[in-house]
Design a binder for these strands. Structure first.
Lengths: 158, 158
DNA sequence: GTCTATGCAAACTATTTGCAGGGAG
DNA sequence: CTCCCTGCAAATAGTTTGCATAGAC
């Protein structure tokens, strides 16, 4: 999808290591939430853990449907909501696009998203993080968190 | 609201000047967009320029209604959209909440807010802006905007 | 007078909820 | 066997669009 050579590879861009979760892991996550293990829930979690990060409910639905043709949107939304509430997944909303979901990453990162197609790229930049701390300190604040979302037009949409 | 002395004043912090727009100014804005001047449009712009920053379409509607009881949501949305497209207002979407609109500030700024008392400090930091551009460029994106919100605990609340 | 803007209602998109039956523990 | 979970359909919230009329220029 990206005819980009090594030299152009940004130091900021990160390929987040999403853990490969075994079926047993998935089941434990569900049980830890105090919920029952069902095929649908396993399938939804499977999509989140195996597939591309940042999937919309629609995409989850379409990925699960081949196996469980009778699954409904309600099931997808309801489970995604449970997962969000329990912090197992993070809901990312950008622009007017449908929410996208990712397994809550171990390592912090920010998002760069395309305002045309909605594609999301993750990045980390320690210089920005450091400057944020500085701004907070200069204002006497103790920094506890931040949201940094960059909007732009991706190479494919330009 | 700020029992703080001069020495603690950060170089990053800015007090945003929100311009007081006269009726003539409002009309000019509308004409400059190549649109016709109507009472409804003046009223909508008036709400944006006089009231609190970051109003939702709903709030604009409610503020205009007393004067123009027959106004419809469509008019509000349509004009807000025109204003956004022409960059006269900026659309801010956070979480799953309805979009909020503010007259595009002359000087760009970000927010540092206290998670205890809710106080908001606006700041500018050109180093961070520069780094953001770099991140976008490294990923082949054309940067069009960003949201940077820092959360922390202010001096008074620590 | 011409063409844009408006109000209304209906359409649309993303998401949530009510309900009766189905399945996990 | 008991609830929780599911699918379906209907409901909701925010926003957009189609259309006939009203109004700006």
């Amino acid at each position: 999808m990206q005819g980009r050579d090594e030299s152009a590879f940004s130091k900021d861009e990160v390929i987040i290591q999403r853990e490969k979760l075994s079926d047993e892991n998935l089941k434990r996550i569900i049980r830890d939430m105090g919920l029952k293990v069902t095929d649908q829930r396993l399938a939804i979690l499977g999509v989140l853990s195996r597939g591309r990060a940042h999937v919309s409910a629609q995409e989850v639905f379409e990925n699960v449907k081949p196996k469980y043709k009778e699954i409904g949107f309600a099931t997808v939304y309801r489970f995604l909501k449970s997962l969000s509430e329990k912090q197992f997944v993070t809901e990312v909303r950008m622009g007017g696009f449908p929410a996208r979901y990712e397994l809550t990453p171990k390592s912090h990162h920010d998002h760069l998203s395309c305002s045309v197609c909605g594609k999301i790229v993750e990045f980390q930049n320690s210089d920005i993080e450091r400057l944020q701390l500085l701004v907070a300190k200069n204002n006497g604040f103790k920094l506890t968190g931040h949201v940094l979302e960059l909007y732009g037009i991706c190479p494919d949409c330009q």
